[in-house]
Design a protein around this nucleic acid. Structure first.
Length: 567
RNA sequence: GCCCUCGUAGUUCAAUGGAUAGAACAGUUCCGUCCUAAGGAAUAGAUGUAGGUUCGAUUCCCACCGAGGGCACCA
């Protein structure tokens, strides 16, 4: 609808003698001002040396006299304010959009922008031997949502997870395991995380221990010490399996797992081949002078003085592997903002080796998750990990449903789905730039602007549909209603919101829209008796409720959130 | 010092250069109503400072102030 209208306005302008590349068509904040609104009259009035209102009148008469193929979808065109042209959609349009939603079902909201393209999204990236922390939770929520938004544009999605199974952090953890005075057999990932913290402290405070850990680091790389190898293989497996459990709860599945241990030699080969061309040897350290190519970039070390590849080099190996293995049309990497500058330098180095990769690489960054209480420590003084946050969130929900008449299995399932929704929504409701603040005292908000609010609204709708089925009321066969509600005015906008989220790579537009949609539905729910056997308009209202539910389902899917049957 | 994010109600967040800057939470006050009150209605409250571009700036440009991140062997 939007595209058609834009096209018609463009033609009208052309007939008047104005060439316009893009037409701004927006939804006015207030429904009284129409469903669509354009500012073209204000933008182009100067060119013709007439007032915006005069131009608006010309455009409207042009639109009316010339053909608008879907003119029956527009009930009224008005000039308002300083020269806006407001379009009011017709009764027929809204009814047909409800029908369309019921027909399209899970395809409702999709577009064809990326049809035939392959998009790889790398996200989460936790490190074996370290806890799954809150940053990983954030990256995962965002990455999964971005992947699904791309999927709604009909791209083939390849999900990738890149994990640091070598490097100093592993050496620190292994040092901790070897010197903690405890047997490691039978211990879990949480315990390994604690050993990492101990090793890390030792590294920072004791010169001799630092040296010892550096030696372990080298031994891990060349696998020269059998005792270390055994602990390494054990710890890697235990932590990776623990991550898998978390992915299940978060509802993500990866197609590829890349490891730093594999990327290191690949990257090192590429870097060494390009010494003198891209990289420079500075007293045995291989570096890249980013500022030579762009004053905003800086110098970074790719192979350190001990001859070991750094993260930068591993990133090169990773990028090469991605393109060789999958050859994506677009390769997206999601990380925290602290990697932003670093990634630009590495991307520049890669572009000098493979100029064709540059345009296809995209880095999305997000802020950090912070706590209102300031410190990253929870009640018992433990560090808040991503895992503990998930468990806390699920427990809060579990308490809320404790006295409902549901089975324990149902309650557990609700706790999981709703707890995760609360977390994911609190991450995805804001634009990606800044940090997000998590209020530990209040725990997760379950009212108003929250994931559970959206789920609750959808569950209410679904509950009506279930009841309608029980009493055998038809949904799909309805008479044309006499009046349409605010709900129809909002619901048809969904595909536009999806497209916008795709264009800007900002999942929060979907979150914002679903909140508006839910609140519109809740008003409708409050002042309308939907299920009334004797009312001839009940079938239409049921169709509308189903269209609403479908939109919520598709929208929440894009945020990585499921809807429980009951809650 | 240089570079990157960012600065909006008491708090947490919105707002493709447009109309009266939207929500939510907290505050005050209503609605026990039937299909799930994890709901709805009402009320009060904000664009860091100083310029510029524009018919029009929260949005773009400049300066300052403030927060976070990055700047050679961590990831």
């Amino acid at each position: 609808m939007k595209d058609k209208l834009q096209e018609q306005i463009k033609i009208a302008l052309k007939n008047i003698g104005i060439k316009a590349d893009s037409i701004v068509l927006e939804h006015p904040s207030d429904l009284k001002m129409g469903d669509y609104s354009t500012n073209v009259a204000m933008v182009y009035a100067k060119q013709l040396k007439i007032s915006p209102k005069e131009l608006a009148e010309k455009i409207i008469s042009e639109l009316k006299t010339k053909s608008i193929p879907d003119i029956n979808f527009i009930s009224k065109i008005e000039i308002a304010g300083p020269g806006f042209i407001n379009f009011y959609l017709s009764h027929d349009f809204f009814v047909s959009s409800v029908k369309e939603i019921l027909k399209l079902k899970e395809d409702w909201g999709k577009n064809e922008i990326l049809k035939g393209k392959k998009v790889m999204v790398e996200y989460t990236d936790p490190n074996p031997f370290k806890p799954f922390h809150i940053g990983h939770l954030m990256t995962n929520a965002i990455g999964e949502s971005v992947a699904r938004i791309m999927e709604f544009s009909r791209a083939k999605i390849v999900r990738a997870n890149y994990q640091g199974d070598v490097g100093p952090h592993v050496a620190k953890a292994i040092y901790g395991i070897m010197n903690g005075g405890e047997l490691y057999e039978g211990k879990d990932a949480g315990w390994i995380g604690m050993q990492y913290t101990k090793g890390s402290d030792a590294y920072d405070t004791d010169e001799a221990k630092k040296k010892e850990i550096d030696e372990i680091n080298v031994k891990i790389y060349n696998r020269s010490d059998e005792a270390i190898n055994i602990i390494y293989d054990w710890g890697r497996e235990v932590t990776l399996l623990a991550f898998e459990e978390i992915y299940k709860i978060l509802d993500t599945k990866f197609d590829h797992y890349f490891f730093e241990s594999v990327m290191a030699p690949l990257g090192e080969k590429v870097v060494r081949e390009n010494i003198g061309k891209v990289f420079d040897d500075s007293d045995g350290t291989i570096i890249f002078h980013g500022e030579k190519y762009d004053p905003k970039l800086h110098t970074r070390v790719f192979i350190n003085s001990k001859g070991l590849p750094t993260y930068e080099t591993k990133e090169i190996g990773l990028t090469m592997t991605k393109f060789e293995k999958e050859n994506p049309d677009l390769s997206i990497v999601v990380t925290a903002i602290e990697q932003g500058e670093y990634m630009k330098v590495v991307a520049k180095a890669i572009s000098l080796i493979h100029p064709d990769y540059e345009k296809r690489m995209k880095h999305i960054t997000h802020g950090m998750m912070k706590f209102t209480s300031g410190k990253m420590s929870s009640r018992k003084g433990n560090v808040i990990t991503g895992e503990s946050l998930i468990i806390d969130s699920m427990n809060v929900v579990r308490e809320k449903v404790a006295d409902r008449e549901l089975s324990d299995t149902e309650k557990d399932e609700i706790a999981k789905i709703v707890g995760i929704a609360a977390l994911k929504y609190s991450i995805l409701r804001s634009s990606l730039g800044g940090d997000i603040v998590y209020d530990f005292e209040k725990s997760i908000s379950f009212d108003g602007d929250s994931g559970p609010y959206l789920q609750y609204t959808a569950v209410r709708a679904n509950s009506i549909l279930r009841k309608a089925k029980d009493i055998d009321l038809p949904v799909n066969d309805f008479q044309i209603p006499e009046e349409i509600t605010e709900l129809e005015h909002v619901i048809y906008q969904f595909p536009e919101v999806v497209a916008r989220s795709w264009e800007l790579l900002e999942p929060h537009h979907i979150a914002t829209f679903l909140t508006l949609l839910s609140s519109t539905f809740n008003k409708f729910y409050g002042d309308t008796v939907i299920l009334n056997k004797d009312d001839p308009h009940t079938p239409y209202r049921l169709a509308l409720v189903e269209a609403f539910y479908q939109t919520m389902k598709n929208g929440l899917y894009l945020l990585g959130i499921k809807i429980p049957e009951k809650m």
